Simulated assay, not measured.
Amino acid sequence: MKYVIVTTEWCLNHGIIIPIEARKSLDGTKVIFHEELISPVIRERSEIKSYLWDSEELHEILNSEEWTIKENLNYDI
């Protein structure tokens, strides 16, 4: 399975409604979709990169500060 990350602005410009349950970046400017969900809208010359579901690159992106709140696990005893 492949995923794509697009901006919310791109979605608005292409008539794509972002589901409430879709995973978004913390600032809400990017969203991740299954590639097949928006493949009819993606053009051949589109510069939207796709990521395999188990790729290290996608894992790193989704675990970055842009997508995940990092909790301070400083336990003082």
Rank of each mutant, 00 (worst) to 15 (best):
2 K>P: 11
4 V>G: 08
5 I>Y: 02
5 I>L: 06
6 V>M: 00
6 V>E: 01
7 T>G: 11
8 T>H: 09
10 W>Y: 08
12 L>G: 01
12 L>Q: 09
12 L>Y: 08
14 H>N: 15
14 H>S: 07
14 H>D: 03
16 I>R: 03
16 I>P: 00
16 I>V: 15
17 I>W: 00
18 I>D: 00
18 I>R: 06
19 P>S: 15
20 I>D: 06
21 E>L: 03
21 E>K: 14
21 E>C: 12
22 A>S: 15
23 R>E: 03
24 K>C: 13
24 K>S: 10
25 S>Y: 06
25 S>L: 02
25 S>C: 05
25 S>V: 04
26 L>R: 09
26 L>A: 04
27 D>S: 05
29 T>Q: 04
32 I>L: 03
32 I>P: 00
33 F>G: 04
33 F>M: 05
35 E>N: 05
35 E>P: 00
36 E>D: 15
37 L>S: 15
38 I>F: 10
38 I>R: 06
39 S>N: 11
39 S>M: 05
40 P>I: 10
41 V>L: 05
43 R>S: 14
43 R>Q: 14
43 R>W: 00
45 R>T: 13
45 R>E: 14
46 S>M: 00
46 S>Q: 02
47 E>S: 15
48 I>A: 01
48 I>F: 01
49 K>M: 10
50 S>I: 00
52 L>H: 10
54 D>C: 11
54 D>I: 06
56 E>C: 08
56 E>F: 12
57 E>Y: 04
58 L>V: 09
58 L>Q: 04
58 L>H: 09
60 E>T: 14
60 E>I: 09
60 E>G: 01
62 L>E: 07
62 L>K: 08
63 N>A: 03
64 S>N: 07
64 S>V: 09
65 E>S: 13
65 E>V: 12
66 E>I: 11
66 E>N: 04
67 W>Y: 07
67 W>K: 05
68 T>L: 12
71 E>A: 14
72 N>V: 13
72 N>Q: 08
74 N>P: 01
77 I>Y: 04
77 I>T: 07
77 I>N: 05
